[in-house]
Write a protein that binds this DNA or RNA. Structure first.
Lengths: 248, 248
DNA sequence: CGAGCCGTTGAGGGGATTCAAGCTCAGTGG
DNA sequence: CCACTGAGCTTGAATCCCCTCAACGGCTCG
């Protein structure tokens, strides 16, 4: 089945132990309004400001580890993070992707250990917020509770959509569905993050070879233009057509 | 691909319009401690008691409808409910199952429409709780907020587990995974709810025929004993062996 | 009793996997 | 400088699992 057997060759524990520089100015943060603390006013934000740290990760470095105690949640400021968990067969399956403004590790707020490995796909910047800080704020500002629930609901929605759109149908259509999602994380220049073939395999439940074949097909059809080792570009028109044809 | 094209022949709207008898005594409810309001004491419970209605559904009747405004949430008291949503191809995919003690339609508390169709698999009894009642209680009793978040997290966990365990691997193993889940909803007598073959198809992303073949295989192997039209029984020993072999 | 739903089984074909080889490219050390 | 290596990607050939198409039997129900 799909790829990398047991996390061999991954960067060591990272995030939790790394030094934690203070976060850049929250007040002027580009994603402030979309982030968990978007509901707070300047004064409230200032009160927790000191407890928030900044984390930077390179590709394939772990942000959190499944099963570990969860002392903090993370808000992604830049980059793409994947959620992985092992299947019963010891293989790995990617179950969700999150990007800027989204929350990682919310289960920590309930006193639960992290439910998935969260691993950087691209270079990632994130804010580290201690669970205790969220709890304290929550008591003072009940609206934060609504915002948390809203995020849980979004995560659930994303997971169920993943299941229906990426977990069914022929390989080519699943790949198109994935690319449509990656398009949302495109940079200003229109370039998307292009996963490794084995990552595609883990996301779409197919082998590396099948992933490679389908990518090549889209490349030959002019839908996808590879652009550097881990980047690509979609031709909007050709992509829409391919999607309409629905994978042959 | 998998079964029933567009909900033809389903019972009409049901739940929302049906008469709402008052709920049976909450104080002595068997699932009280496992339900959403398990955190409330007798006095708090008594205060909302009057707003809670009881709903009873037969197999294939809808509890809530995807996309519709969500005035209430439901706590399942008995039976099994499936969450369905249409795929991009107009087919239906079952994305989650819930049983006694679990919550349906929590997204309504955020002012969102229902995210999935929730349909009774077996005979179902549920409590209908107006969102307004939950909101009011929530303001009075903050612990209810934690309980809600806990349920959201459980739903998310269930969805991701569904993806990794039922969305991958050969057909037989996926079926075994499903049966293991259904076992949790077994009655005191050890009988489990046995889905129709097309329902199995919608859950495990396979055709009716494949579902039938795999079921027959398990039947011949003595793992599964069909017992009435919509019921079955698992042979614990044979089942464990089959699971260990992992689908041949 | 015919109609329709549900389940089962067979035959055939196709899409994905498996096994295998070859390619490019970056990093390494002789 | 260049073989050497290994990771990642691609492609081919053979196999197999699952899908498609099809037929049939049991059952309920009008």
């Amino acid at each position: 089945m799909n790829a990398h057997p047991l996390a061999a060759g991954m960067a060591p524990g990272a995030a939790c132990l790394a030094p934690r520089p203070p976060a850049p100015a929250c007040e002027s943060c580009a994603i402030r309004r979309h982030a968990l603390f978007g509901v707070l006013d300047d004064a409230e934000l200032a009160a927790v400001r000191g407890q928030i740290g900044s984390v930077e990760l390179g590709p394939d470095e772990r942000l959190v580890l499944r099963g570990q105690a969860a002392p903090a949640v993370y808000t992604v400021r830049a980059g793409v993070v994947r959620f992985e968990r092992p299947t019963a067969q010891g293989l790995r399956r990617i179950v969700r992707l999150v990007g800027p403004g989204e929350l990682v590790g919310a289960e920590g707020l309930l006193g639960l250990p992290y439910a998935d490995d969260a691993i950087a796909c691209t270079a990632v910047e994130a804010c580290r917020i201690p669970c205790a800080a969220v709890d304290a704020l929550h008591r003072a500002q009940p609206r934060l509770g609504d915002e948390l629930m809203r995020r849980w609901q979004q995560a659930l929605e994303a997971s169920e959509t993943w299941l229906t759109e990426l977990g069914t149908g022929p390989a080519l259509r699943r790949l198109l569905g994935l690319l449509a999602r990656l398009q949302r994380y495109a940079d200003d220049d229109g370039r998307i993050w292009m996963p490794r073939r084995d990552e595609i395999g883990s996301m779409l439940d197919m082998t590396v070879e099948t992933a490679s074949r389908q990518v090549s097909r889209l490349r030959r059809a002019g839908v996808l233009v590879l652009d550097g080792p881990r980047h690509a570009r979609l031709d909007a028109k050709a992509f829409a057509e391919a999607l309409a044809r629905g994978g042959e």
